[in-house]
Write a protein that binds this DNA or RNA. Structure first.
Length: 469
RNA sequence: GCCAGGGUAGCUCAAUGGUGGAGCACAACAUUCAUAACGUUGAGGUUGUGGGUUCGAUCCCCACCCCUGGUACCA
C-alpha cells in the first residue's frame, strides 16, 4: 500500500453530533494518523463532513423560521467544532451543500443515465416522513412504520426516477464473495448477501420537497439524499475538480460507517460506481454503537452528550483514550463518565503520567543522549491495520508496566555512580520515547508533549500530564 | 417470526478438546524517584440453563433462556 484514503460517515444535520458519532471519527483519525507515520503525510487523505440535503433538514429549518441553508450551516459548524474538540485531523470537512458537490452529483447521474440505469416511473407507496422512505405493506406494523410508530403513514403517488439496482444483483453478490475484505466484520457480508438476492430498483429522486440537488434537466425533482450523500466520497477527494488528487487517492481504502448504513455502502454505492465506470472502495468498516449507562443515546432518553462536554473536562486525549481502549469498534459498547474517570486515573494518571513524572525527575541528575528513532512493532502494526485499537493500547500499556518494573528493580534513586545512573535512565528514556511514538495515532497531544520533554540532552520534570481527579 | 453476532472474575476483555487468563476495582506487604504513585503477593469463577458426543467440553452437537443488530434508508 502506498496511499491511504479514509472516510467517515457524513453526519446528517438534524442535530449536532454526540459521543456515538465521535467514536467513529476518532477511529478514522487513528487510522489517518497511523498511515501518515507509515506512508508519509502526503499519502494520506482523511475526509469527514456533513450531509445536509433532504426533507428533514428543510422541515427543521421551517420550524425555526430560517432558511434551510442557514439552518444546515449552523449544525454543520457545530459538528465541525465538536470534531475539532477531539483533535480529529481531517484533511477536508465536506458539506454536501459545497458548490462543487452538486456538479459531481450531476455528472454521476448523467453517467449512470447514459449507461441506461435510470428510468422514470410512477411510484405509489406508503411513505413515512420520519424515515423519508416508502414501505411495502408487509413492512408496516398495524399500518405504522416500526421506527416511527407515532407518525402517520401517507399514501403518496410520485413520478420518480428509478435506479436499476436489480441489474447489479449478480455483480454485487460476486464482488462480496470474491473480496473477503470488502466488508468488515465478516458477518456483515452475510447480511448483505441475503439482501442482495432480493434487490429491487429504487426511486432516486423526490418531488415533494425542494431542498436538494436538482435532477439534471428536470427542475421538479431533487436527488434522493442517499444518492447524493454517497457521492461525497468522490467530491471530497477532487473528482472533476482536481484530477491529480483524485487519481492519487481513489479508490477509498476504508469507508467507516455505522452499522445502520451498511446496506447503502455495501450494495447501493458499489452499484452506482460500477454503473458510472468508477472503481470500488476496498473496505467498508462497520462500527457498532455506543450506549451510555446501558441506554441508547437518544434525545428522548435525555442522555445525549456532546464530545466537547467531556473534552472540556478531561481533555481530548483522555476521551480518545477511554473510547479507544474500553470499547470494541465492531460491537456495541457501553460507556459511562464513571468508567472514563476510572480509566483516566488508573491508566493515564497512575500509569503513563506517573511514569513520565518519575523518570523526568530522576533525569534531572544526568545528561542523556538523544534516543534512537523508534520503530513500530509488528503486533502493533497488525493491530491497527486490523482495527483492533483496544488490543493495541493494551500492548502499549504493557510496555509502560515493564518500564515501571525496570525502574523499581534497578532503583536509580539509590545509585550514586553517575555512569551507571546515566545508563539506567537512558534505557528508561528510550523506552518512553518509543511509547510516545506508539501513542501518536491515539493521543496526539500527549505524545507530542512527551517527545518534547524527553528529547534531551537535559530533561527536567514538568507539570503532570494527567493530574489525578 | 426469520437471519446474524454475543452471553467467561464486580467491570473491560483474552484463551484453549486436556487441572480457567490479563488489566481495572478490592486487600495485604514492600518501597520512596513519582500524581497517597510504582512494585510484589493475595482474594475473586459449577465459563447463561439443560441435555448429548468424548477417557476428558468453556470450546463440538441439540434444545432452551437472555442481550444486541438486521429484516428497503435513526452514527
Amino acid at each position: 500500500m502506498n496511499k491511504f484514503y479514509v472516510t467517515t460517515a457524513i453526519d446528517y444535520v438534524n442535530d449536532t453530533i454526540h459521543l456515538g458519532h465521535a467514536f467513529q471519527k476518532i477511529a478514522a483519525d487513528v487510522l489517518a494518523r497511523y498511515y501518515r507515520i507509515t506512508l508519509g503525510k502526503d499519502n494520506v487523505f482523511f475526509l469527514t463532513g456533513t450531509d445536509e440535503y433532504g426533507q428533514k433538514a428543510e422541515k427543521a429549518a421551517k420550524e425555526q423560521d430560517i432558511s434551510p441553508s442557514e439552518f444546515v450551516k449552523k449544525i454543520s459548524d457545530s459538528d465541525q467544532k465538536e470534531q475539532d474538540s477531539l483533535n480529529i485531523s481531517y484533511d477536508r470537512f465536506i458539506r454536501t451543500t459545497d458548490s462543487n458537490h452538486a456538479e459531481v452529483v450531476k455528472e454521476i447521474w448523467n453517467r449512470i443515465k447514459k449507461n441506461g440505469d435510470i428510468y422514470s416511473g410512477e411510484y405509489q407507496g406508503s411513505y413515512c416522513e420520519g424515515c423519508e422512505a416508502y414501505y411495502t405493506k408487509e413492512d408496516l406494523i398495524e399500518g405504522k412504520c416500526h421506527i416511527h410508530p407515532t407518525l402517520k403513514i401517507k399514501i403518496i403517488k410520485e413520478e420518480n426516477y428509478f435506479f436499476k439496482w436489480s441489474k447489479y444483483k449478480d455483480f454485487l453478490i460476486e464482488h462480496i464473495n470474491n473480496n473477503p475484505d470488502f466488508i468488515f466484520p465478516k458477518h456483515g457480508a452475510k447480511e448483505m448477501l441475503k439482501f442482495a438476492k432480493n434487490i429491487k430498483d429504487i426511486p432516486i429522486s423526490r418531488s415533494n420537497f425542494t431542498w436538494g440537488i436538482s435532477v439534471p434537466n428536470d427542475l421538479k425533482q431533487v436527488v434522493y439524499v442517499w444518492f447524493d450523500a454517497l457521492i461525497n466520497y468522490l467530491t471530497g477527494v477532487g473528482f472533476l475538480k482536481n484530477k491529480e488528487l483524485f487519481s492519487k487517492f481513489w479508490p477509498a481504502d476504508v469507508h467507516i460507517l455505522g452499522k445502520d448504513n451498511l446496506r447503502w455502502h455495501a450494495l447501493l454505492w458499489p452499484a452506482m460506481l460500477k454503473s458510472a465506470g468508477i472503481g470500488l472502495p476496498k473496505t467498508i468498516l462497520v462500527n457498532g454503537f455506543l450506549n451510555i449507562n446501558e441506554q441508547k443515546i437518544s434525545k428522548s432518553v435525555g442522555n445525549v452528550i456532546r464530545p466537547s462536554e467531556w473534552t472540556k473536562k478531561y481533555g481530548a486525549d483522555a476521551v480518545r483514550y477511554y473510547l479507544l481502549r474500553y470499547t470494541n469498534i465492531i460491537d456495541d459498547s457501553d460507556i459511562s463518565e464513571e468508567k472514563l474517570l476510572q480509566a483516566y486515573n488508573a491508566d493515564l494518571a497512575n500509569g503513563l503520567g506517573n511514569l513520565i513524572a518519575r523518570v523526568a525527575k530522576l533525569c534531572e541528575r544526568v545528561t542523556l543522549k538523544s534516543s534512537p528513532t523508534p520503530t513500530l512493532s509488528q503486533d502493533y502494526k497488525q493491530g491497527i491495520e486490523n482495527f483492533k485499537f483496544n488490543e493495541v493500547l493494551e500492548i502499549v500499556w504493557s510496555r509502560i508496566k515493564v518500564l515501571d518494573q525496570q525502574i523499581n528493580s534497578s532503583e536509580p534513586w539509590k545509585v550514586t555512580d553517575q555512569k551507571k545512573l546515566t545508563q539506567i535512565l537512558q534505557s528508561s528514556v528510550n523506552g518512553i520515547v518509543s511509547v510516545a511514538n506508539e501513542l501518536k495515532p491515539f493521543l496526539p497531544n500527549t505524545s507530542e508533549k512527551i517527545e518534547e520533554q524527553f528529547k534531551g540532552p537535559k530533561i527536567i520534570s514538568e507539570k503532570p500530564l494527567f493530574p489525578r481527579i
